[in-house]
Simulated scan of single mutants.
Amino acid sequence: MMTTVETTQKPRRFYQMMAWVFVAVAFGGFIPTYWLKLMDGSFAGKPILHIHGFLLFAWVLFYAVQVNFVANRKMADHRSWGIAGVSLFTALAISIVLAAINTIKQGELTGFATQAASFSIVTFSGIAIITAFITLAIMNVHRPEWHSRLMSLSFVPLLEAPMARPFAVLMTPPGAVGPPPVFVTLPPSLVIDLLLIAFLIYDRRVLGRFHPVTVWGAIAIIAVQILCVPISTHPAWIATAKAIAGLAS
Rank of each mutant, 00 (worst) to 15 (best):
M1A: 11
M1H: 12
T3S: 09
T3Q: 13
T3F: 05
T3H: 09
T4V: 15
T4P: 01
V5I: 05
T7S: 14
T7G: 04
T7E: 14
T8W: 01
Q9F: 10
R12T: 09
R13C: 00
A19E: 10
W20E: 12
V21H: 09
A24V: 14
A24H: 13
A24G: 06
F30I: 15
T33A: 12
Y34V: 15
W35Q: 11
W35R: 09
L38V: 13
G41Q: 11
S42M: 05
A44Y: 12
K46C: 04
K46A: 12
P47G: 08
P47W: 09
L49N: 12
H50A: 13
I51S: 10
H52W: 04
L55D: 15
A58E: 01
L61A: 13
Y63C: 04
A64Q: 12
V65T: 12
V65H: 07
Q66S: 10
V67H: 00
V67A: 13
V67Q: 13
V70D: 09
A71H: 13
R73P: 02
A76T: 11
H78Q: 14
H78V: 10
A84R: 15
G85L: 08
L88M: 10
F89I: 00
A91T: 14
V97P: 01
A100Y: 07
I101S: 01
N102T: 13
T103W: 08
I104G: 02
I104V: 06
I104E: 05
G111D: 00
G111E: 08
A113K: 05
A116I: 08
A116V: 06
S118C: 02
S120T: 00
I121N: 03
V122M: 04
A128G: 07
I129Y: 02
I130S: 09
T131S: 15
I134N: 07
I134R: 07
L136S: 08
A137S: 11
M139G: 00
M139Y: 00
N140G: 00
V141E: 07
P144I: 08
E145L: 11
H147W: 12
H147F: 03
R149F: 08
R149K: 10
L150R: 06
L153P: 03
S154R: 03
M163H: 02
A164S: 15
A168V: 05
V169S: 08
L170I: 05
G175H: 03
G178C: 06
P179M: 03
P179H: 04
P180F: 01
V182C: 03
V184W: 06
L186I: 15
P188N: 06
L194Q: 07
F199M: 15
I201P: 02
Y202A: 03
D203I: 15
F210N: 12
F210E: 00
T214G: 06
V215G: 06
A218S: 15
A218Y: 05
A220C: 11
I222F: 10
V224R: 02
Q225G: 07
Q225Y: 06
L227C: 06
L227W: 08
I231T: 01
T233D: 08
H234R: 04
H234M: 07
P235G: 04
W237I: 04
A239L: 01
T240K: 03
T240S: 05
T240C: 03
A241I: 06
I244A: 08
A245N: 13
G246F: 02
L247G: 10
